[in-house]
């Protein structure tokens, strides 16, 4: 392909430089004539514009259809509602729901129509049934059990932590430890040592970089 292109370009350069110019002129001429003729058309189009017509024939039906389909599952693309989905299936469903609304059916009737054919799976709000009891009450049961468990656990922990009875010797030791400044001194010493150590390590790092 590359070589073919190259050949044709070379050919143009060699024998038909003037032809190209002529061709160019002809095209420009045609464009100019076209523009002159098109101009009235364009202005007409601009002055004669209209508001975009709503896609739906009847906005009320469309609104009802949309609120209904927002709670219905598209069976083909299972994580989308029929209202959102672009699948052929959802198109059909929207059409059928529109038809049924026009025929004067109520919302529960339309939903029954769909459930009869596609089962509860089309509903995003599952109905309460024997098979869905766990779904509905599972979280509540889980919450109750975990709360009971937590209460028991916390109570048990409070029982575990008992006041420790210290002997006199031990109490003296504790008091001595709390009173003494040694603890503070030791801590500040530790702090200084740490600071020194970090300085050293920084120096080392710099050395490495150089």
């Amino acid at each position: 392909m590359m070589s073919l292109n190259g050949l044709s370009i070379n050919g143009l350069k060699q024998n038909s430089c003037c032809k190209v110019l002529k061709y160019f002129r002809r095209v420009m001429g045609a464009a100019a004539i076209l523009t002159v003729f098109m101009l009235p058309l364009i202005t007409q189009a601009e002055t004669g514009y209209k508001e975009a017509a709503p896609v739906a024939e009847d906005l009320e039906i469309e609104q009802r259809m949309l609120t209904l389909t927002e709670d219905l599952r598209c069976l083909v693309c299972q994580n989308e509602t029929i209202a959102d989905s672009r699948a052929d299936f959802s198109n059909d469903m929207r059409r059928i729901i529109r038809e049924q609304i026009k025929a004067g059916k109520t919302d529960p009737e339309i939903i029954d129509f769909l459930v009869e054919r596609y089962g509860d799976f089309v509903l995003y709000n599952p109905p309460m049934k024997n098979t869905t009891l766990l779904l509905w009450f599972g979280p509540l049961i889980f919450f109750i059990f975990s709360t009971l468990f937590m209460i028991k656990y916390l109570k048990g922990r409070r029982m575990q932590i008992k006041e420790a009875n210290l002997t006199e010797d031990e109490q003296k030791k504790v008091a001595a430890l709390l009173d003494s400044d040694d603890l503070h001194d030791q801590q500040s010493n530790l702090g200084q040592e740490q600071a020194q150590q970090t300085e050293i390590s920084e120096k080392n790092n710099k050395g490495n970089n150089v």
């Binding site: 069976l75 299972q78 459930v115 009869e116 054919r117 596609y118 089962g119 509860d120 799976f121």
Partner: peptide, 9 residues
Amino acid sequence: NPRQVPSPL
């Protein structure tokens, strides 16, 4: 299989 929707029919 989530594609296997039990048919109510």
